[in-house]
Amino acid sequence: MRIPKRFQGIMFVLPALFVLAMLVFYPIVYTVVLSVTDPAGNYVGLENFRSMIDARLTARAFWNTLIYVGFSIIFQVLIGTAVGILLNNEFWGRGAVRALIVVPWVIPGIVAATTWAWMFHTEFGIINYMAQSAHVIDQPVGWLTNPDTVLPALITVNVWKMFPFVAIMVLAGLQAIPNDLYEAARIDGARKHHEILYVTLPHLRPVLMSITLLLAIWGLNAITIIYAMTKGGPANRSLITPIQIFRHAFEFFRFNEAAALSVMFFGATALLMTLYIRIYAEKD
């Protein structure tokens, strides 16, 4: 028995769609149901939403999430692009360097987090030691326990972990730029930084756009680094929404409130993504 041609395509696609539907779309619907019911399953309207919006931590966590993800992306893209351009130069050992710098990206987030937590340790951390030896600071800094330094420190780790991804993507994008464009620019008397500004970057724009989107998604998902390094502390100064959801669900066993928070988080993320895609699409 042959399957009619017009059904063949869908037959290939169906298994994957079915799995994703079970694992993604059903849970989304279920989250919405949980968010408007109480633990016994009775409909309670927006009660769970109200109690989460009233919770002092919700706004702080959301703000922290924006700062953490926003600054992470800015530095990941800036540093990653610069490194990509750097590695596009011809130099001895280029292949090895390209391979090595990607290692931070492939290692488990938890490994990065614990290693950096040890390096940031107030008393025995190598970072305080080096900074003190270089007379950058004269007292040990509690990087992860000082409200002013905790988010920058966490952002540093996140940037360190993810900039290699940007770099290899940029590198691939650079290699797709036809060489004659550079030659044309050179004939016109362009200098190196002009080349970067007028040839390289415009060509990278589509690549950078999709990278930024991916980084945003991953950033909003990323619990690991913060969870392992500070658990949101000190005094919730590094609490982000995903950790708040996790706490309500798995530490306080308040699944309905956690679901309400999830719905709000999903809504906010979807809004950001749509805005981004809209802007991206318009510019093209």
């Binding site: 994957a16 769609l17 994703l20 539907a21 694992l23 993604v24 779309f25 059903y26 849970p27 989304i28 279920y30 989250t31 949980l34 998604i217 909003l220 998902n221 619990i223 929404t241 995903p242 959801i245 996790f246 669900a249 798995f250 699944f255 956690a258 679901a259 999830s262 719905v263 988080f265 999903f266 993320t269 979807a270 993504m273």
Partner: peptide, 20 residues
């Protein structure tokens, strides 16, 4: 649908996934 699957924040589906 697959794109949405990729964009979805995992934190938002841990709870229902746990229940499922």
């Amino acid at each position: 649908l697959i794109i949405v699957g990729q964009l979805l924040p995992t934190a938002a589906i841990i709870v229902p996934l746990y229940v499922v």
